[in-house]
Design a protein around this nucleic acid. Structure first.
Lengths: 262, 262
DNA sequence: ATTATCTATAGATCTATAGATAATGC
DNA sequence: ATTATCTATAGATCTATAGATAATGC
C-alpha cells in the first residue's frame, strides 16, 4: 500500500479535546457525530414520541451518551434545544417556497404542486415525525415565536401561489384564504397520518411506506382542492420544478443534523 | 306569589354534603356544576393549551376551585382525567358515523358529506380545541389504548362510506385506503387550523369564526377529494341527514360535561 | 354515618449551576 | 491554556397517599 491516506474519514483516530465521556453510546449509530448533533438527534426522537415536557434532560443525554449536566455546555436550556429542532424543520420547505415564488416563468399550478410535493415529502420522509414537533402545545410559549413566524411565512407562500392560479380568478371574496387553509391543512395531514401509523400499527417510529409516492398523491389532492382542471399538465411541470430544486440543493453541503447515518 | 316553587333551579340553596371548599372559584362560571365536571372543564382548557405533562394537578384543581389532593376523590389519577376527556371527544362523531353507516337508503356520497360535516363541526365548534387532545404525545401511552380503538373505528367509517361511493368503483387497488386517509386528514385539519388561529392570531382560545360554514366547506372539500362529480346533490341530501340527526340527538339528555354554561 | 373536602407530607423527580477533572494543544 | 466532560447538589417542583375535619343525612 504505497498511498497512505486511503480513507481519511475512516482512519481518523477520533481523539477529541476535553474530558472523555463515561456513559456508553446507547444503540443508534451516532457515535462519531458532533455532540451537539447527537443531542439534537436524541431530542428529536424523544420529543416526537413522548413530548417536550414529558422528556427529561436526563433521558436526552442518556440517549446521546453523556451525563445530564453536559447538555448545558451545548445548549443554554431545554427550550433552546427544541428551538433548534423546530427551525431545522421548516427551513427546507420555506427555502423551496421562496424559490418557487420567484420562478415566475412556471405556471402557478405547477409551482403549487411542487411546493405541496416538497413539503409533504419532507414531512413524510424525515426519520422521526419532526413535523409533529410543532403540534406540541409547548410551542405556544413566547420562546418559540421566531419559529412560528417562519411557519406563518410558509403558510402565506401557499396562499400566494394559490392566488396566482387560473382557478383563483373565480373565487368568491374570502375563498382564497379559505382554500389556502384547506390546502395547507391537507399537507400537514401527513403529520397526522404518521401519528396514526405509529398509534395504530407500527410500534416503532418510522417514515410512511413510500414518501415519494405519498407526497405526489398529496400534491395531486392539493390541486384538486384548488379547483385546478388541468391536473396532468401541472403535475408534469411540477415534477420538473422539484427535480430542478433537488439538483440545486445537492450541490450544497447538506447540513441536516438530525438525519443520522442510516 | 301563590305558587312557591317558581324556579326550582335558581332557588336551590346549593348546600352540599361534605366538608366545604376553601379555595375560591377562579373566574369562568362553573360555580354550580358537579365537582367532577369542574375538574374536567379545567383540565380541558389546560391540557389543550399547555399540554398534559406541562399541566400540574395543582393547576387543574386551582382552576376548579379546590385543593390539589381533592382531585383524587374524583379521579384515580391524572391519566384517568385525560382518558375521560378523550372519550367525550370522539364519542359524538362515532355515534353519528355508526348511524350513517346503517342509513343505507341515503346515497353514500351524502352520508360521507354529512359525516365530514358533523365531525368537522364538532372539532371546530367545541369550546376548547378538544380535538388537539389526541395529538398530545402522551396519548400513545398504553393507558389510552381504549380511546385509540374508538378513533380507529371512526377512521374506518370514513373508509367504508367512501368505498360505497360511485367514484370508488374506478379506484385503483389501494387507492381507497389512500383517499380515505386524505379525507380523514382533511377533516382533522380543523384541529390544526384552530391551533394556527391560536398561535398566530387570537391569544385566547376559541372556536373558529363560523363553525357551521367552515364545516360545510370541509365537507365539500372531502367530496372533491373523493372524486365525486355530483357535489350539489350530495350536499343537499347530506344537509338533510345532518338535520335529522341533530333533531334526534336533541331529544336525548345532552351530557356534555366539558361544555360550560356560556 | 356518609360525604367531600382539607392539611401535611413522603418520595421521586427535574432543571440548572458550581466547581472539579481528564483529555488535547501550544 | 483550552475544551468538553464529569460529580454533586440546590431548590423547586410534582403526584399520590394518610389521616383529620366540617358539612349534611338519618
Amino acid at each position: 500500500m504505497p498511498t497512505a491516506a486511503k480513507d481519511p474519514v475512516a482512519d481518523r483516530p477520533k481523539r477529541r479535546v476535553g474530558r472523555p465521556r463515561i456513559a456508553p453510546e446507547s444503540g443508534g449509530g451516532t457515535q462519531d457525530a458532533e455532540p451537539r448533533d447527537q443531542l439534537l438527534a436524541a431530542a428529536a426522537e424523544l420529543f416526537t414520541v413522548q413530548g417536550y415536557s414529558a422528556t427529561s434532560t436526563r433521558a436526552i443525554t442518556a440517549k446521546a451518551g453523556m451525563r445530564q449536566a453536559s447538555m448545558y455546555y451545548h445548549f443554554a436550556s431545554k427550550e433552546e434545544l427544541l428551538s433548534s429542532l423546530l427551525e431545522t424543520t421548516v427551513a427546507p420547505s420555506l427555502e423551496f417556497a421562496e424559490w418557487a415564488l420567484a420562478e415566475r416563468d412556471a405556471a402557478a399550478e405547477a409551482r403549487l404542486w411542487a411546493l405541496a410535493r416538497i413539503d409533504a415529502a419532507q414531512l413524510a420522509g424525515a426519520r422521526h415525525n419532526l413535523g409533529a414537533l410543532y403540534l406540541l402545545p409547548e410551542v405556544r410559549r413566547e420562546a418559540f415565536a421566531p419559529f412560528r413566524a417562519l411557519r406563518a411565512r410558509l403558510s402565506e407562500s401557499y396562499r400566494e401561489l394559490l392566488g396566482q392560479t387560473a382557478a383563483a380568478i373565480d373565487y368568491a371574496p374570502g375563498e382564497l384564504a379559505q382554500r389556502a387553509h384547506l390546502v395547507f391543512g391537507l399537507v400537514e395531514g401527513v403529520i397526522l397520518a404518521r401519528l396514526d401509523n405509529r398509534l395504530d400499527r407500527h410500534p416503532e417510529s418510522g417514515p410512511l411506506a413510500d414518501p415519494a409516492a405519498y407526497s405526489a398523491e398529496v400534491a395531486d389532492a392539493a390541486l384538486r382542492l384548488s379547483g385546478c382542471d388541468r391536473l396532468g399538465a401541472a403535475r408534469e411541470q411540477g415534477r420538473r420544478l422539484c427535480a430542478e430544486w433537488i439538483g440545486r440543493s445537492e450541490h450544497l453541503p447538506s447540513a441536516t443534523p438530525t438525519g443520522e447515518s442510516a
